[in-house]
């Protein structure tokens, strides 16, 4: 086993608000090895974005706080409690990030070129001229036509897809070992999304960069992720390789998500939604947090919160699910198909 590049252990990030304590991230553990793409998947409020902000040390404090006992290690170095100075050196250098809405992350009053040059000069101490050359090369690498010309343009002069390419160029400028991409294609059209996913795959191949992809789109996950971490209500619901999780979902939530999206190979069939709604983070249910939406739930789930239970795949892969079904598989009564519609 290669040593993990990123090791998150028992991460708890809470928000202390007037409405009570929101346990946004509540004991999350996972790892990313060098060159690997890991997807954090889940619906709004599951804690996936707060997890990524915690890694970057960007959780607004107050009201947010990473609790004692949480650990985030990058190449073995503990980041929880690290100095702001150390974190600033890390961000954009060893760990870079791109977000959903590139227009919101680009500064409208600086040219594209100035914004790509900034990390080069700041982190790598390049001269203005060297930074310009490097920036133009980066724009070229992320597939922007006429890069030397685009260098002097402002963000509003670019299309959405081009802006996201600029964000990627800024992110990879200092050759980070880890790229955190938070819904990088959600705001983009499907043909532009395909371009950006293709670009990320290329970069990963050419640079050996690890990617932590945060998304709600199962299609995107299936396409790019090596491993998947499914989150629900601030916790890891299920984890495993993409092939395992999509092929044999073991948490009822994952199973429900996959059954609720329209798919070409099941056209004409009725969708099977998950009943109910995602609970609020200041009011997680006691016991299993998915129990009241679960089609298999029995008394045990309401009484006792299941831990993340390891699954035996027989293929030596790391695989676990937070569900009592792992301990009592006979409770998984016939597949969803047999269910009568409500």
């Amino acid at each position: 086993m290669t040593a993990p590049l990123l090791q998150v252990t028992d991460l708890r990030t809470y928000f202390f608000t007037d409405q009570g304590v929101a346990r946004a991230v509540d004991g999350v553990s996972f790892s990313v090895t060098p060159g690997e793409t890991v997807a954090l998947v889940g619906e709004s409020g599951c804690g996936k974005t707060v997890t990524s902000l915690s890694i970057l040390g960007l959780v607004p404090d107050p009201p947010g706080r990473i609790l004692d006992g949480s650990s985030i290690r990058l190449r073995g170095e503990e980041l929880v409690g690290a100095s702001e100075e150390r974190l600033r050196r890390l961000r954009g250098n060893e760990v870079a990030m791109i977000f959903q809405e590139p227009m919101a992350s680009l500064n409208p009053v600086f040219t594209v070129g100035e914004q790509i040059s900034e990390p080069l000069r700041l982190h790598l101490g390049m001269s203005k001229r060297a930074a310009r050359e490097r920036a133009v090369a980066l724009l070229n690498e992320v597939g922007i036509p006429e890069p030397a010309h685009r260098f002097d343009e402002y963000p509003h002069q670019l299309s959405g897809g081009m802006r996201q390419r600029v964000m990627v160029a800024i992110a990879i400028a200092c050759e980070p070992a880890l790229l955190i991409a938070d819904e990088p294609t959600t705001a983009l059209d499907v043909t532009i999304q395909a371009q950006i996913l293709e670009l990320l795959a290329q970069l990963r191949e050419h640079r050996g960069m690890a990617v932590l992809l945060i998304t709600h789109d199962l299609g995107v996950v299936a396409e790019v992720a090596d491993r998947v971490v499914v989150m629900y209500a601030g916790q890891v619901a299920e984890t495993g390789t993409a092939t395992e999780v999509f092929g044999f979902p073991s948490h009822p939530y994952t199973e429900g998500l996959l059954a609720s999206i329209p798919r070409a190979d099941r056209s004409g069939e009725r969708l099977r939604p998950i009943p109910g709604v995602v609970p609020a983070p200041n009011d997680w249910p006691a016991g299993c947090r998915f129990a009241d939406r679960c089609r298999y739930a029995w008394e045990r789930g309401a009484a006792e919160a299941p831990p993340l239970l390891e699954l035996e795949t027989g293929r030596g892969e790391e695989r676990a699910a937070r569900c009592w079904l792992v301990a009592e598989p006979a409770r998984r009564h016939p597949p969803i198909v047999a269910e009568t519609e409500q």
């Binding site: 999304q193 395909a194 789109d217 299936a222 993409a242 996959l258």
Partner: peptide
């Protein structure tokens, strides 16, 4: 062809990536 399918392995087979905007 650009629709991401929730089916690992099928992935980008046969995808036509359009150039430009």
């Amino acid at each position: 062809s650009a629709i991401p399918r929730p089916d690992p392995g099928v992935g980008r087979v046969g995808r036509i990536v359009l150039v430009g905007d």
